[in-house]
Design a protein around this nucleic acid. Sequence first.
DNA 1: CTGAAAGCGCTAACAC
DNA 2: GTGTTAGCGCTTTCAG
Lengths: 338, 338
Amino acid sequence: MTPPRKTPTMTDVARLAGVSPMTVSRAFKADSSISGATRNAILKAADQLGYVFDSTASNLRSQKTDFVAVTIPSINTANFADTVRALSDGLKPRGLQMLLGTTDYDMAEEERLIEQLLRRRPEAIVVTGGNHTPRARRLLENAGIPVIETWDLPETPIDHVVGFSNALAVRGMVDHFVTKGLTRIAFIGGDTSRDTRGADRRSGFVAAMAAHGLDPSRLVAAGPPPVSMRAGADAMARLLQDHPDTEAVICVSDLSAFGALTECQRRGVPVPDHISIAGFGDDEIAGISVPSLTTINPHPRDIGSQVVALIGDLLDGKRTDAARIVISPDLILRQSSL
Amino acid sequence: MTPPRKTPTMTDVARLAGVSPMTVSRAFKADSSISGATRNAILKAADQLGYVFDSTASNLRSQKTDFVAVTIPSINTANFADTVRALSDGLKPRGLQMLLGTTDYDMAEEERLIEQLLRRRPEAIVVTGGNHTPRARRLLENAGIPVIETWDLPETPIDHVVGFSNALAVRGMVDHFVTKGLTRIAFIGGDTSRDTRGADRRSGFVAAMAAHGLDPSRLVAAGPPPVSMRAGADAMARLLQDHPDTEAVICVSDLSAFGALTECQRRGVPVPDHISIAGFGDDEIAGISVPSLTTINPHPRDIGSQVVALIGDLLDGKRTDAARIVISPDLILRQSSL
DNA sequence: CTGAAAGCGCTAACAC
DNA sequence: GTGTTAGCGCTTTCAG
């Protein structure tokens, strides 16, 4: 019977290859000065032993983990998933590994998560949103690594920002509707206490309506974020009942907008003839549903790739100032609005 | 001007609190024997110094990382995201941190990813699918940690399995259509060379059709996975052109099924009166679209929570045999099919 | 291009 | 309940 075979270490590989452990170390590092012949011999010996490089030891000694920590509210939300994908894809070729955690739209949970992630000693940390508990903010400020806040444009950023104004984006949509002559406009959104980006979109709506001298009180709460299609449909049902004369509705997300659209379809309410519908996100569904959905594209993939580029520059020392990269959301006009 | 303040270590905290580093270590471990008073004093000192526990050192010394590695083909796919969410949510209370990587439906990329993840010394690794390069398989076999293959039912599993038969699930759908009297049935799917689960669904379709003595040749290729709504719509356009007498179509995913549905709507082809449509996944859209979509629910969240329970039992030593947990996909009949 | 010595920050193992 | 010693598996640093 075989003994409980211990995992082989560099020393084992060194012995088999007839070199010092230091040379084995060099063989596993891309740009180190080592002859091709010895490297090949070492890699062969390593393969023979089933050796797997131990990052934990390497990380401790070199004080480098090649981790980039990322927090998002939810993973099953197309927009955030798109940003994460762009992040992950961009970090990979740079040899960086994403360390992802979700906050479930909860700032206390975000604080716990940030602390846990910082313990892993990432090279940088990317957080979604510009609102944090005081302790979370302090942890980030003292982390000694680049901090990038995204999907938002905080007034007093911790460090770097790659984002956009959610309020301003919705204001553009309101302006568009008003220009088209619509005045009785409603907003469907989630619990503003949890989703700060959703809250910003709602306050953008209220401010824009007020600026046009219009009634901003047609606000329908659609439950906890992320607002589902079903929640959007239910909210639309309530809106049609409470304010049957509503001419247009802006939804906090494309999912809720699509849900709202289906509710109209089930009730035989023609869109956009009877009511215009707009979403947020430019998810794939917005472009393909019948009718297609007017929406706002906040360029989630761009956010991810801009963050990657920024992290690259920061880690390479090519840049040291606090970046403030502003993404411009685009208004996408489609069939669901006049 | 302040010196380039070094990150404080346990030794610094110990000095300030007037205890030994070992006692500080105990203060940061949940279940260790230490008096409440000293713990509080230590945590206060740590807070004062801005000390952040260093997992990298802890991991090396204790030979425990509390990482669970997870590979999925794509993060922007609702089904996988649901499994990942259940995984992440379940691991969190156990003090385990998910280490997520995406393969982009590429086995060579999966091999690279698996090697990179194993270097981080996770406690367990969860992979999507039962198909791997020979080297990837060898790496997993020799990893010395629990390996869980998911979303599939491989004939020769590496270790543990939590999944279902994609082929069998689609066979159930074909059987249902045949029972309803439909015979001219098509299949819309992605590149079978890359997406092995998609390939299994397709081969399940072909086998089921053949078993009923029906023509299994109405196969429409919809491009690289994950098959988008748009790709589903384009595939439907081709199907309607090439085989206008098709009575039913089974799509590899709900996204492609919804895309196909919208194409019918744009062309004025009534669903299900002229053609029945079925998807796969039971994404939220399937239940809410008008008409709603007949589909298969493979219970992605169950897969995730079963995996978590299994990992828990394995790490606690409550279980040592190779598990084979079979999930039963459910046929969900809705308006899009007769 | 290769090697020897030392040590990254924590904790297992053992004392008391 | 607390302290001491040693060492996890690498890589920095310095020689050669």
